[in-house]
Design a protein around this nucleic acid. Sequence first.
DNA 1: TACTGGCCAATACAGTGTATCTCCCCGATG
DNA 2: CATCGGGGAGATACACTGTATTGGCCAGTA
Lengths: 203, 203
Amino acid sequence: MRAAIELADADGLDAVSLRKVATALDVRPMRLYGYIASKEELLDLMVDAVHAEIRPVGDGWREVLRSLAEATRHAAHEHEWLADLLGGRPQLGPHALASGETVVAALGSVDVDAIMPVVAAVNAYAIGAVRREVAERRAERATGMDEKRWQASLGPYLERTFATGRFPALATVVRDAAHLDADHTFRIGLDFLLDGIEARISR
Amino acid sequence: MRAAIELADADGLDAVSLRKVATALDVRPMRLYGYIASKEELLDLMVDAVHAEIRPVGDGWREVLRSLAEATRHAAHEHEWLADLLGGRPQLGPHALASGETVVAALGSVDVDAIMPVVAAVNAYAIGAVRREVAERRAERATGMDEKRWQASLGPYLERTFATGRFPALATVVRDAAHLDADHTFRIGLDFLLDGIEARISR
DNA sequence: TACTGGCCAATACAGTGTATCTCCCCGATG
DNA sequence: CATCGGGGAGATACACTGTATTGGCCAGTA
């Protein structure tokens, strides 16, 4: 599983094949089936292993939830393949449960019936936001490794389609609005969500 | 592309192979490369095609954003494979831009610099929430098509791990808290987010 | 009529996850 | 001590994937 994570970190999820993992371990491919039942199980184990790095901390429910989201984002930055797997199947491994435990424990002051929806919402936001962020990062890299070429290759396409006049509102926003960086965008959305939660649970 | 969507609807994303799409069209596989450059492009086209079904409607920014999230969820229910693709790469196809346009147009009363973060946050939440929902739905189906067997197969595992005493807070919440259905969970999280947005943009 | 350019089909290739078959070694038994 | 049996490791096999390359045919032109 560690070998698989190293492969994925280095060359992406596609580079994780049972044959490659086996050779990394100096073992024959079919040996792996003594430990896992299928490749999906290996992927689940990888995700749970990374959950060990997601350790929410902080005082009070708000800080802990924020920390959960930020830690998820941080983990996905270090393991971009995580964005492809997060939310793809239920996470019930020990490390995932452990981080869930610390979060729920920090929500002791919250109404017990509200805990699950709140945690679920923060998780959903974090997963969706991280996915888009990683997708953009990859797209940038695909067009020549630097941001200028990305703008240069995307710009003309967008200009052309905006020039059709079919998306006037979108065009003005893209052209006129301030462009926030990824950090700010993530935090603003998270603040929206946490504000809304705060308003409801302290009602 | 329509053929590919039908295949995916029927048997999941794995069933979409260029060979199968080609035979569905009574064509030889390599013919497809006259229309697409790679399989990824086909997947992008499929996603954009489904974006045609995502038509946010409503009066006022709040209703439109809610409609956007609900429509995304609805589309993913009819095309479960969409959950695997959403957020996986930037969506710049015409239909995706069109739904973005109607959303942005409905946010005319909002500060222009706030529009992008707001839309991004709602999208992120919708994608993350839909993913988890679809993941659960699949897990249920995988354990025998009905919910009872799902509980029966998951229950013992959770009971065992909770019995270790390592997740006391989680255990009490799972055992004692009311379990909301998927519709409510989605709507509650969405309300959190929209409340938070409302508080900030009308500030 | 000879030729040539383009396009379509077929084949080829390197890889995938996983099922099955084979064989060898080691331990237990007569 | 010899023989046998079983279990596990290894190799092989299979069906399939996405895509590059090759072969051949046919239409249009000189």
